[in-house]
């Protein structure tokens, strides 16, 4: 018989006792089960449950739809003309969002759309209970996406000793001097 086999045979009875002790210890301790439907789960911060839309911020720029790896974002928009606010001014055009939909049967939760949005119109929400019996029902339109905005948590606090956010540091800077009116500048040039 080899040394290893001898060793394992010597370890037989203590090993069995250790097995009994380990299970008995676990029996005496509280369980790890989280009773999910009865008790809400404790999700980690920045959980990616669903993508919420703040439609007011959306400019229909299409960046999210174009960056989406599996093209699960559908955006329709049209242009409206905003009449000039000052006499002699120029009419402006702006995009008006007609449809914003995300197909969560295609979405792979990469979060690129949230990252790429330049106007903070898309947010991660930890909400995850939106299963459907039919896969086609997972295509959610802007009103449903907007409802999830209520579940979006506030952004996490900054790390200790990190730089102030841009909004705060801007407050400390001296206010810009108002630009001289254009007509006066022209007169100065003539003078």
């Amino acid at each position: 018989m080899t040394e290893a086999a001898k060793g394992s045979r010597a370890a037989g009875i203590p090993g069995l006792v250790r097995g009994l002790a380990a299970t008995a210890r676990t029996l005496a301790r509280p369980t790890h089960t989280s009773e999910y439907p009865d008790a809400p789960p404790s999700l980690p911060p920045r959980s990616r449950g669903v993508i919420a839309l703040l439609a007011e911020n959306c400019t229909s720029c299409m960046l999210c739809a174009r960056e989406c790896p599996d093209w699960c974002i559908y955006i329709d928009s049209h242009k409206e003309t905003v009449p000039a606010t000052t006499p002699g001014g120029r009419d402006r055009q702006r995009n008006v969002l007609d449809r914003f939909a995300i197909d969560f049967s295609l979405c792979m939760y990469c979060g690129i759309c949230v990252e790429v949005c330049p106007f903070d119109a898309l947010f991660w929400s930890p909400e995850f209970e939106y299963a459907e019996l039919d896969i086609r029902e997972l295509l959610h339109e802007r009103d449903r996406l907007g409802q999830w905005m209520a579940t979006v948590p506030p952004p996490p606090a900054l790390d200790e000793r990190s730089a102030d956010p841009a909004e705060v540091s801007a407050l400390g800077k001296p206010a810009r001097a108002p630009r001289a009116p254009r007509q006066a500048a022209a007169e100065e040039g003539q003078a």
Binding site: T23, A24, T26, L27, R29, T31, H32, T33, E35
Partner: peptide, 13 residues
């Protein structure tokens, strides 16, 4: 129940 608790679970509830 005993097996569940010995494995850190709850068993049928």
């Amino acid at each position: 129940k005993v097996m569940a608790h010995m494995q850190g679970r709850l068993g049928p509830m």
